[in-house]
Simulated assay, not measured.
Amino acid sequence: MIPIQHYLLVAALLFCIGLAIVVTKRHFIGILLGIELMLNAVNINLVAFGRHDPERLTGQLFALFVIVVAAAEVTVALAIILRVYGRYKTVDPDEVSDLKQ
């Protein structure tokens, strides 16, 4: 059995990589990918802690809920990105100066 520290280390590394991507990327798609990496790190933590209580499936259920929320978030975010690109012809968040039409 793999100790929980290994899961937590991988999740922390994945979360830090996602956070670095969110902070440094200049495109909406890159920022969205960083957020997805951070949500996957949360899922790893939930499943890792869920393994230590095999009688309850709370960790796995919360991970499933996070996956559903992430799918909805990606759908809404991509719709917003397509709308912003259609109006401003760019996906650079710094070049989008106003949100009024």
Score class of each variant (00 low, 15 high):
residue 83 R to E: 08
residue 34 G to Y: 00
residue 66 V to K: 01
residue 40 N to A: 13
residue 85 Y to A: 04
residue 48 A to Q: 01
residue 4 I to C: 04
residue 59 G to E: 02
residue 23 V to K: 02
residue 64 L to V: 14
residue 73 E to K: 11
residue 87 R to N: 08
residue 100 K to W: 08
residue 60 Q to R: 08
residue 30 G to S: 06
residue 24 T to G: 03
residue 28 F to Y: 13
residue 27 H to D: 15
residue 69 V to H: 02
residue 32 L to H: 05
residue 12 A to E: 08
residue 74 V to H: 03
residue 79 A to V: 10
residue 13 L to F: 13
residue 82 L to K: 12
residue 80 I to Y: 05
residue 69 V to Q: 07
residue 5 Q to A: 08
residue 3 P to K: 07
residue 19 L to G: 05
residue 37 L to P: 01
residue 84 V to E: 01
residue 26 R to E: 11
residue 65 F to G: 02
residue 18 G to N: 01
residue 41 A to W: 00
residue 76 V to M: 07
residue 56 R to S: 15
residue 57 L to D: 12
residue 71 A to R: 06
residue 75 T to M: 14
residue 101 Q to H: 13
residue 48 A to D: 01
residue 24 T to F: 07
residue 20 A to P: 04
residue 1 M to W: 10
residue 83 R to A: 13
residue 60 Q to K: 06
residue 91 V to D: 02
residue 68 V to F: 11
residue 69 V to S: 07
residue 91 V to P: 00
residue 56 R to Y: 12
residue 9 L to E: 09
residue 74 V to G: 00
residue 44 I to K: 02
residue 31 I to G: 01
residue 71 A to F: 13
residue 43 N to W: 02
residue 96 V to S: 04
residue 32 L to S: 03
residue 87 R to P: 02
residue 75 T to L: 14
residue 58 T to Q: 08
residue 95 E to Q: 14
residue 89 K to S: 11
